[in-house]
Simulated scan of single mutants.
Amino acid sequence: MPVAPLEEGGLAPYSSNHDEVETVGRTLVRVETDDGITGWGEMLTAMQSPSVTKAVIDDVIAPELIGRDLDEIRDFVASFYYPYVKTRPFLGAVETALWDALGKRRGASVSELLGGGLRETVDVAYCLGMLSEDESRRYAARALEQGFDVLKTKAGPDWKADVDRIRAMHDETDGELEFRLDPNQGWTVDEAVRAGAALEDAGIYLQYLEQPCRIDSYGTYERLRQRLRQPIAANEDTYFPRNLYYLCERSAVDVAGVDLVPAGGLLGVREQIAVAEAAGISVTHHNGFDLGIKQAAVLHLYASTPALTLAPDSVYYGWADHVLEDPLEVENGAIRVPDGPGLGVSVDEAAVERYRVESGRDASGC
């Protein structure tokens, strides 16, 4: 799917310390029931390979699902045990489709099935790649004008440049925007300490510093939290439930940035949220260039989960095209929770066909 250019209100090129995004490969999952109900799910194309993603769903996930009753979501998810292979992201996309179908069968939204009624709209965080200081100023001002309260930006190999960009955006918006800074595991401990301290010296306190160092670096985040006053967030570490439990147990992070797809679905991510809530840390939801299907699932999750205390990341405003018949609308920095049955959104299958790729083709060519 194409990402719209920055100058047209989009995000491309969206630069981080490991890539530059102008198109994104996504995999859509469609579940059809014997009584004619269709449910939809969505995931990032695994390893940018449609063939791998499709094979796992067709050969591993689908045989366990076909023949079950739609009500058996928990039992279906619990039936997988592959100690050497991680199947949760594939389960997450399929499980989302099951909730969508179950809601349609019951005539209830996913958030109602999960307890719902908490929020009708969800504030979201604006996302911005690595740009020059002047460009960062301009687009931070645009985010503020559009009603966003929080801006998440990527960080790269030059932590001093990242600090300068945050200072520039903070100055441009007169301190009215909060910032999230995400190096995507790209910093060493000393770089994270110096960057965080430099921002503190400038009187700038991030909403959080997200996963600055590599996952499984046990002890790193505990030391960072002791040395900095900047809140520390784990994101990629939450893709491994035991890592999140360890970080909470050691009081090593202030924020958990969870994601329902790598967590194995709505049930799995709610279990992770419960761990974070019990540890007394804040929780937000990650965004990996989600299309409308997963974005709707995140909205329903927020509408039914009080422990989600921080706005989710979103890049929904950045797409050049959509796969929903009625695309979600971002207004004043927020998105309304769809109120129809299931996920409350309808997929435009003609649009899906326009962007379909053969399973043998590299997803980066979408």
Rank of each mutant, 00 (worst) to 15 (best):
P2A: 08
Y14C: 05
S15Y: 04
S16V: 11
G25R: 00
R26L: 14
L28I: 15
E42M: 11
M43W: 06
T45P: 02
Q48Y: 06
V52A: 15
V56K: 03
I57T: 08
V60C: 14
V60S: 07
P63M: 13
D69K: 04
F76K: 02
A78E: 12
S79I: 08
P83H: 04
P83W: 08
K86W: 05
T87L: 12
G92Q: 02
G92S: 10
A93S: 09
V94E: 09
V94H: 02
G107H: 04
S111V: 07
L113Y: 01
L114M: 13
G116V: 03
E120F: 05
L128G: 00
M130I: 15
E133T: 14
R137G: 12
R138W: 02
Y139R: 09
E145Y: 02
D149L: 04
D158A: 15
W159D: 11
K160T: 15
V163K: 00
H170V: 02
T173L: 05
L177C: 12
L181N: 01
N184K: 00
V193C: 09
A195Q: 08
A195K: 03
A197F: 06
A202S: 15
I204F: 12
I204D: 11
I215E: 06
D216H: 15
Y221N: 05
R227Q: 13
R229D: 14
Q230R: 01
E236W: 07
R242Q: 14
L244N: 01
S251A: 12
A252R: 02
L260K: 03
P262W: 03
L266R: 05
Q272D: 05
Q272G: 08
V275T: 05
V275R: 10
E277T: 13
A278S: 13
A279V: 12
G280Y: 04
G280D: 05
I293G: 07
K294Y: 06
K294N: 12
Q295L: 08
A297E: 09
L299Y: 06
A303Y: 11
A307S: 09
L308E: 11
A311W: 00
W319L: 14
D321C: 09
L328A: 02
A334L: 03
P341T: 10
L343I: 13
V347P: 01
R356M: 03
R356C: 13
S359C: 04
D362R: 15
A363M: 00
C366N: 08
